[in-house]
Design a protein around this nucleic acid. Structure first.
Length: 551
RNA sequence: UGCCGAGUGGUGUAGUGGUAGCACACAGGACUUUGGAUCCUAUGGCCCGGGUUCGAGUCCCGGCUCGGCAGCCA
């Protein structure tokens, strides 16, 4: 069980019986965009804590702003939370289900002389709010009678007034050093169609007013949110105390930041709208749907969420940790296959034309229980262009003129000649094989420096392979004024890959390790049996790349 | 220069008065029919200054730095 300041607080509450030993959290997204990895952190935290303490966690849509919210988003959020592996049973709630009760509570506050209808314009309210260093000024409407406020508020609800003409405000303290306490707006008039309540309402509650009530109504014990709401906690507490209702504890933690990644919904939406990516679920997006399509597993994301920890310090996690988590998971479960993405044709001169052998390949060296499968071998093969160099440095131990290398699960071959094109680029290799060295047989114990992967040209399956790189060229794209300027133009490279024939039966979402290259998955949207499409999830650790870089 | 909050290796995160630990990254090595995986080893840290104490990352005081807040967004 992880240890962090939130669990410390819960342990303390359990000790003092503040909530009678109960633990009940909630994940409260606003349905105005797709969930991203930062939300996943919160989902794992809230549902994870509930599970650890044998408590409950609700899924609740904070749908108080009809102007920005859509059912498409609620559907995607439900799918994503479920995919991450969490269950809210029958506790799927919507803030909009509580509108009537919130209205009653507002009437109660008005009757207590703690809220008033303000006829000021938005501009006037902003100007009278004061500044960070100067107190605000009280509204001329602040001291209306309770009767007048009641009447006006009822008429606001009845639709008698235009958008923006009036608001309901809490009467707190215009001189408070905490701006949130300077008579915050509780309701605004919005004649807008709500995705659930239709046109039933034309006044909508503001976050600060609504959120605590939602938590209170659901008997939440620990209302976990991000740091920027720290200043709002006094207001959260004020509303609940003035109403005298059940009062959860709000706790704030630092949101997730990732290197080379943007997390704000605004920026993510911009990428989608400007077609910098192919939608919210583009595999380059840090959205849960993007990661899923990219080939990330729920387990890897949960592990990641656990490893990054929970704290109040603003921090930025290196994206390498996320990549480590998916490699670690896929290493244990992904079957190994061979695929050549940048083919170089080789002919084994001394291998009889038309001869075909079935080589036995291990499905996963980490798990012998996964068995083996056959791969056809023949005279003409493809190997990776990177696995051959005409003038290799001494650190390179793959194929080169006159050098030997092992073909994975097959024979040791030697390169005897190179065919170059006009530009001098190697386009075909002629090799000989050593018949004594077939994998698994007596002579196969002979050692050579390198082993490379291959596919038989005549048996190869062609597929579209999408190779992804980071979306941004800088570590902190979120700090840049316009993210368009730091987009990586090479974040997607599409190639035709040559795959071993066993992949014929690959189904959408299927995850594989292409030996020596990385983990790849069948694209869930664009792949079909006629035209397979693979996404590269993540590369394997590449020691050679590091060496080559230093040369 | 208002209010709130945060400062522990490169990046994160533990440590609640008693040997500063873990993960990732990085460097080296072992092993290897994936330059994968695995294993081993190394480098590297308590923002600063005072104070309390036998003893301070931890408690106190004073600084410094960074983040958040002036939507009828959440």
């Amino acid at each position: 069980m992880p240890s962090d300041f939130i669990r410390d607080i819960i342990n303390e509450h359990n000790k003092t019986e503040r909530f009678g030993g109960r633990v009940h959290t909630r994940f409260p997204p606003e349905p105005n965009g797709y969930l991203h990895i930062g939300h996943a952190k919160s989902v794992c935290l809230n549902f994870g804590i509930a599970a650890e303490y044998k408590g409950l966690c609700n899924l609740r849509f904070d749908d108080t702003n009809p102007a920005k919210e859509e059912v498409e988003y609620v559907e995607s959020i439900i799918e994503d939370v479920r995919w991450l592996g969490f269950d809210w049973q029958d506790r799927l709630f919507y803030a909009s289900d509580y509108f009537e009760q919130m209205y009653d509570y507002a009437m109660q506050l008005i009757k207590a002389g703690k809220a008033y209808v303000d006829d000021s314009s938005a501009d006037e309210i902003r100007e009278s709010r004061g500044t960070l260093t100067q107190p605000g000024k009280e509204s001329p409407y602040r001291n209306r009678t309770v009767e007048e406020n009641l009447d006006l508020f009822q008429r606001m609800r009845a639709g008698e007034f235009e958008d923006g003409s009036r608001v309901l405000r809490a009467k707190i303290d215009m001189a408070s050093p905490n701006l949130n306490m300077r008579d915050p707006v509780m309701y605004r008039i919005l004649h807008a169609e709500h995705h659930r309540t239709g046109s039933k309402w034309c006044i909508y509650p503001m976050y600060d007013w609504a959120h605590g009530l939602e938590d209170s109504i659901e008997r939440i014990t620990h209302s976990i949110c991000t740091l920027e709401f720290e200043d709002h906690r006094p207001l959260y507490d004020w509303f609940l105390d003035e109403l005298g209702v059940y009062h959860p504890q709000q706790i704030e933690f630092a949101r997730l930041n990732l290197t080379y990644t943007i997390m704000s919904k605004r920026n993510l939406r911009q990428l989608v709208e400007k077609s910098d990516v192919r939608g919210w679920d583009d595999p380059r997006m840090p959205t849960v749907s993007g990661l899923r399509r990219r080939g990330y597993t729920p387990e890897s994301i949960r592990t990641f969420a656990e490893r990054i920890g929970i704290a109040k310090t603003d921090s930025t996690i290196e994206v390498a940790l996320l990549e480590h988590c998916i490699r670690e998971d896929l290493n244990k479960r992904a079957p190994r296959v061979m695929a050549v993405l940048h083919p170089l044709r080789i002919v084994i001169d001394n291998y009889r034309e038309g001869k075909i052998e079935e080589m036995e390949a291990v499905n996963n060296p980490e798990d012998p229980g996964m068995g083996t499968h056959k791969v056809p071998f023949s005279r003409v093969l493809y190997i990776e262009q990177d696995d051959f160099m005409e003038r290799p440095p001494k650190e390179f131990f793959r194929l080169a003129p006159g050098r030997e290398v092992r073909l994975r699960y097959a024979y040791i071959i030697k390169c005897v000649s190179v065919v170059n094109d006009k530009a001098g680029k190697a386009v075909e290799l002629h090799c000989t094989y050593d018949p004594e060295t077939r994998s698994g047989e007596a002579g196969s114990s002979r050692k050579v420096k390198g082993t490379i992967h291959w596919v038989s040209a005549e048996h190869a399956l062609k597929a579209e392979v999408r190779i992804y790189d980071r979306l941004f060229t800088v570590e902190n794209p979120g700090d840049v004024a316009d993210v368009e300027t730091v987009l990586n133009p090479h974040s997607l490279q599409t190639v035709t890959g040559y795959l071993e024939p066993s992949l014929k039966s690959a189904t959408p979402g299927g995850k594989y390790q292409f030996e020596r290259l990385g983990y790849f998955c069948v694209d869930a949207k664009d792949s079909s049996p006629e035209k397979l499409v693979f996404n590269r999830t993540v590369t394997l650790r590449d020691t050679w790349a590091k060496i080559a870089k230093k040369l």
